[in-house]
Amino acid sequence: MKRELPILLTVLCGLGITMAFFSSSAGDPDDLPLGWTKAVNSELLAWALVFFSVAFILGISNLVRISLKTISSRGEDWPYKAVMLIVLFGYLGIGLMEIHQQRYGFFGSTEDAVVGIAGQGERAMRDWVYFKVFVPLQATMFSLLAFFIASAAFRAFRARSLESTLLLTAGAVIMLGQVPGGDELTFGYAGRALAFTMTYINGAGQKAIIIGATLGVLATGLRIVLGIERSYLSE
């Protein structure tokens, strides 16, 4: 029963959401024979949101447990774990404090003008931490991509075989077609080669991958919704 019940629920929810997707949405749902499926669909999606929110607690508890274990055993790079926990709970504290001061109006807040602990605005402190600390760090990580593209391209574009030579040639043509002056230097041929390669060769290849992948998604989805695929469930 521990295995059959989840499968039954999956099948029922899957079929319900599929019916809602294909049922008519022309007019008032109350007047339509399958209008109730839309209501069921919205209700299920609301439940899913609640599940996702509650699951955050599980994620944070996992993070805290593993970090505390590393800190207590003075494992490798334990100070970073300590910093992570301080930031995690510090940011949570700032958020709670700001929400609290909005409700009860200390730190100079009035009903007309909400003042955050770091200045004017409902979420001044949270925004400051987010935009001045988190966003630059995120951009730093993202900017690493430029260097990694260069190092990966250096390895991939070595002409060792016929395939890699073709890749190198295609890469050179694409680059020439996109860099300033490349098109002029080649009397317009690089631009035309770029357009042809991207539209027909690259476009056709991408569409082939998309068609194959979509059929794979469809097959997996059907197997799950119909209860044929069960390996994602535990024993």
């Binding site: 990694f148 990966a152 391209a153 390895r155 991939a156 991408q206 082939a208 991958i209 998309i210 194959g212 992948a213 059929l215 794979g216 998604v217 097959a219 997996t220």
Partner: peptide
């Protein structure tokens, strides 16, 4: 099966499972 990320994996990994092969 995300076609935009496949070139990166092909360039940087020893083996790549492409699109429908994944399923």
């Amino acid at each position: 099966a995300k076609q935009h990320q496949l070139p990166f994996f092909v360039a940087a990994c020893d083996y790549t499972i492409i699109g429908e092969e994944y399923f």
